[in-house]
Simulated assay, not measured.
Amino acid sequence: MADTSRFRRAFKEFYALPYPGWPQAMEFREWSIQLATLDSHIPGYLLRVNDGSMQAREIPELAEITREVESLEHSLDLISATTSRDVQLKEEYRAYLVVMERMLQELVDLAAE
């Protein structure tokens, strides 16, 4: 059986991180809706892999989910944060995406074993 300790650490880190707040700029709101939609697909799979009721290789479209997260991370750089709150939120979203990517990479690694 595969060593899941790195996944479990990434899982705990991801679940401990609060989801960032709601931005004010419309362009930023549209971006955050894309992340929220994607984020809504991931937790069910994470919980099942974490409790052993699902193998990472059974997650449908794992590679596509990972690419979507990477795309969102790149598009975040293109968003203009116009208020101090949005500047702060942009950094919170960036931190959230880094942790999400790390956790997804652990899933990809488990799926490859």
Results as ranks from 00 to 15, higher is better:
residue 48 R to S: 09
residue 47 L to I: 13
residue 29 R to H: 05
residue 31 W to N: 09
residue 106 E to H: 07
residue 91 E to Y: 03
residue 35 L to K: 12
residue 36 A to P: 06
residue 64 E to S: 13
residue 49 V to T: 02
residue 71 S to K: 14
residue 36 A to N: 09
residue 13 E to D: 15
residue 39 D to F: 07
residue 6 R to I: 14
residue 45 Y to R: 09
residue 54 M to L: 11
residue 45 Y to E: 03
residue 80 S to M: 15
residue 70 E to Q: 12
residue 40 S to I: 06
residue 25 A to G: 10
residue 18 P to M: 02
residue 10 A to T: 06
residue 26 M to P: 15
residue 66 T to F: 11
residue 111 A to E: 08
residue 52 G to S: 02
residue 90 K to G: 01
residue 58 E to W: 12
residue 56 A to Q: 05
residue 67 R to I: 13
residue 66 T to S: 14
residue 57 R to G: 05
residue 107 L to N: 00
residue 99 V to Y: 00
residue 47 L to W: 15
residue 44 G to Q: 07
residue 44 G to S: 11
residue 30 E to T: 14
residue 75 S to P: 12
residue 85 R to A: 04
residue 76 L to Q: 06
residue 89 L to D: 00
residue 87 V to W: 00
residue 21 G to M: 01
residue 35 L to P: 03
residue 41 H to R: 15
residue 62 L to I: 05
residue 37 T to G: 09
residue 18 P to E: 04
residue 104 L to P: 06
residue 83 T to R: 01
residue 82 T to D: 15
residue 112 A to Q: 04
residue 41 H to Q: 14
residue 78 L to V: 08
residue 45 Y to K: 06
residue 86 D to I: 03
residue 78 L to E: 14
residue 106 E to N: 04
residue 9 R to D: 13
residue 38 L to P: 04
residue 43 P to S: 10
residue 13 E to C: 07
residue 78 L to F: 07
residue 27 E to Q: 10
residue 7 F to D: 01
residue 60 P to E: 15
residue 48 R to N: 07
residue 13 E to Y: 09
residue 102 R to F: 06
residue 16 A to I: 04
residue 9 R to P: 08
residue 62 L to Q: 01
residue 2 A to P: 14
residue 23 P to T: 00
residue 59 I to F: 02
residue 99 V to T: 12
residue 113 E to V: 08
residue 67 R to C: 13
residue 1 M to A: 10
residue 27 E to S: 15
residue 11 F to W: 05
residue 44 G to W: 10
residue 110 L to T: 00
residue 68 E to P: 02
residue 54 M to P: 01
residue 47 L to C: 08
residue 57 R to M: 06
residue 65 I to F: 05
residue 102 R to C: 09
residue 41 H to I: 13
residue 60 P to F: 10
residue 68 E to M: 12
